[in-house]
């Protein structure tokens, strides 16, 4: 059985946030949701400042606190290491979001249709249709409606329904079809490496052997599948350069 993992090379990450964009396009997330999020930190005081970046996907922990606390088993871990949410099971208690030390869970506070980008645009406008080709959003990735994994649950794309939780799926619909997650595929500097860590011949396994990976918030004992190389663990002394401006 494959065991998926991801390596984030902080020495390569340049904070362009293309992964965030790719995730949004692939998974059709609404305005305030960042399944993949890249911190842009500033350290020190002007003029002695230093910038650093920290991509933060779901860590797909082996000892996932969100899986432990879910009262109905909507959040579960597959044998290949991917942690998923079943939106048809979720009761919307949001306990997972509080158990998670990384803050990767996003709740549908309203109907996703009311929370998409560019709601005020007139999609019938000829100027607009010349660009869109007549497609009226919200565009929905058709792969999200299929069932995945041994347990055949509708887990890709997070379900996007009012009152349920969603988060990064490691792009389960792509991975099961032999593709890489959207963020990894897009990264222009190859800072994200994805693959089977149980197979010693995959690029990710070679990466893990060659470098010394560390985990985010190791002290919480979550045993994440996402590893970081280079850089250093973030501290609270770091401040974000800007805060995501999103309407909920």
């Amino acid at each position: 059985m494959a065991k998926y993992g991801m390596v984030v090379d902080l020495e390569r990450c340049q904070g362009c946030r293309a992964c965030m964009e790719a995730c949004k396009v692939e998974n059709n997330t609404t305005e305030s949701m960042f399944w993949m999020y890249v911190f842009r930190f500033e350290e020190g005081t002007y003029p002695d400042t230093k910038m650093s970046f920290l991509p933060r996907p779901c860590q797909h922990c082996d000892n996932a606190p969100c899986v432990k606390v879910c009262p109905v088993g909507a959040r579960y871990k597959r044998e290949d290491g991917i942690v998923l949410t079943d939106p048809d099971r979720c009761i919307g208690c949001r306990y997972c979001s509080l158990a998670c030390p990384y803050g990767v869970n996003y709740f549908n506070y309203q109907k996703p249709q009311d929370a998409y980008y560019a709601l005020g645009i007139d999609w019938e406008d000829p100027d607009v249709t010349s660009v869109t080709g007549g497609v009226v959003p919200p565009y929905k990735n058709p792969d999200h409606d299929l069932l995945y994994g041994e347990e055949q649950r509708r887990t890709a794309g997070g379900g996007h329904a009012k009152g349920v939780m969603e988060k990064c799926t490691f792009c389960v619909h792509r991975v099961e079809n032999g593709m890489l997650p959207a963020c990894v595929e897009t990264c222009p500097t190859n800072a994200l490496v994805f693959g089977d860590v149980s197979d010693p011949d995959t690029p990710i396994s070679r990466y893990v052997r060659a470098r010394e990976p560390w985990h985010l918030l190791e002290e919480t004992g979550t045993e994440p599948s996402v590893m970081y190389v280079g850089g250093k663990p973030p501290t609270l002394a770091l401040t974000e350069i800007e805060r995501p401006k999103a309407r909920v």
Binding site: L98, G103, Y109, K111, D114, R243, V248
Partner: peptide
């Protein structure tokens, strides 16, 4: 009808809220 957007609760983390 509106969803929980009608409450003051928001996601912990990037949205800077309290979800309980």
């Amino acid at each position: 009808t509106a969803g929980m957007v009608a409450t003051g609760m928001r996601d912990v983390g990037t949205a800077g809220g309290a979800t309980w």
